[in-house]
Computed example of a mutant assay.
Amino acid sequence: MQTSPDPSSRSARPPTAVRRGGAIVALEGLGAIVIAVVLWFHAAGGADESFISSYGTGAWFAILGAGVLAGGLALITGRRWGRAIAVVAQILLIPVAFALLTDSGQPQYGAPLLIVVIIVLVLLFSPSSVRWLAADYAPDAEPDDIPPDVVEKPKPKS
């Protein structure tokens, strides 16, 4: 006997696309934190012209990196609020990638960054990701209206 899934039993586990996008975003946040630490060591070694330059830039990278890391981890663990952080971070990285490709003359960094940004945006706006996000906004939906990939499947009893 098979019963329709209960809408209140929606899985907290996001689709694979969201988890993969979240993992990439978490790595971006971790990368920013690593850059912050490098800048702080650079400043502590006395290699900086002004005192505030590396420390201030390092603090900026640490704060933003921590936020992006939190957003990525939120997506991996099924918290929908992480998607907003991830999407905004990717949108802000697009001009950085283009600047690296053109004005900075460093396409070896700009091209891979742009590819990663596009991959993350495709993952976060894939149909399964959008259905997963929208499922939280349809609490009164009938069980048959909810896509099967956003509903926890009942486990067979042994």
Score class of each variant (00 low, 15 high):
Val18Gln: 01
Asp145Gly: 10
Leu30His: 06
Ser9Val: 13
Leu30Ala: 12
Ser54Gly: 09
Leu121Thr: 00
Leu100Phe: 02
Ser54Asn: 10
Ile24Met: 14
Leu73His: 10
Arg80Lys: 14
Arg10Gln: 07
Val130Ser: 10
Pro112Lys: 02
Tyr137His: 15
Leu27Ser: 05
Leu121Ile: 04
Gln108Trp: 13
Pro95Glu: 09
Arg20Lys: 15
Pro156Val: 04
Ala47Gln: 14
Ala134Val: 10
Pro7Leu: 00
Gly22Cys: 11
Asp145Gln: 07
Leu73Gly: 07
Gly46Leu: 07
Asp149Ile: 11
Arg131Ile: 08
Asp145Phe: 10
Asp103Met: 14
Ile63Met: 11
Arg131Trp: 01
Pro14Asp: 08
Lys153Asn: 09
Ala99Arg: 14
Val18Lys: 02
Arg20Glu: 12
Asp145Trp: 11
Gly110Asn: 04
Leu64Lys: 03
Ala97Met: 07
Ala74Val: 05
Tyr137Gly: 12
Ala44Met: 13
Pro147Glu: 12
Lys157Ile: 10
Met1Trp: 08
Ala70His: 05
Glu152Phe: 02
Gly110Leu: 03
Ser158Glu: 13
Leu39His: 07
Asp145Glu: 12
Asp103Cys: 08
Arg10Tyr: 03
Gly67Asp: 01
Ala86Gln: 03
Trp132Gln: 02
Val120Glu: 05
Pro143Val: 01
Gly31Trp: 00
Val96Tyr: 03
Thr57Ala: 14
Gln2Trp: 13
Trp40Ile: 01
Glu28Asn: 15
Val122Gln: 04
Ile33Asn: 03
Asp48Ser: 09
Ser9Thr: 05
Leu92Ser: 08
Ser53Tyr: 15
Ala134His: 09
Leu121Pro: 02
Ser128His: 05
Gln2Lys: 15
Pro127Gln: 00
Ala135Pro: 06
Ala70Leu: 11
Val25Trp: 00
Leu69Ala: 01
Thr57Asp: 14
Trp60Glu: 11
Glu49Met: 14
Gln2Leu: 14
Phe51Ala: 13
Trp132Thr: 04
Leu133Asn: 06
Thr77Met: 07
Glu28Arg: 15
Glu142Ala: 10
Val122Trp: 11
Lys153Thr: 04
Gln108Ser: 09
Ala99Thr: 13
Ser126Leu: 02
Val122Phe: 12
Leu92Lys: 08
Arg131Gln: 11
Val130Glu: 04
Pro156Ile: 05
Ala74Phe: 05
Ser128Val: 09
Ala74Tyr: 05
Ser11Asn: 02
Ser4Gly: 14
Leu69His: 07
Ala89Ile: 05
Tyr109Arg: 11
Phe41His: 13
Leu73Ala: 15
Arg131His: 12
Val122Pro: 02
Phe98Tyr: 07
Tyr137Phe: 15
Ile146Gln: 01
Ser158Cys: 08
Leu101Gly: 05
Arg83Gln: 03
Gly29Ser: 07
Pro112Glu: 02
Ala59Asp: 08
Ile76Trp: 12
Lys157Gly: 02
Ile91Ser: 06
Met1Ser: 09
Ser11Thr: 04
Pro5Gln: 05
Ala43Gly: 11
Val87Tyr: 06
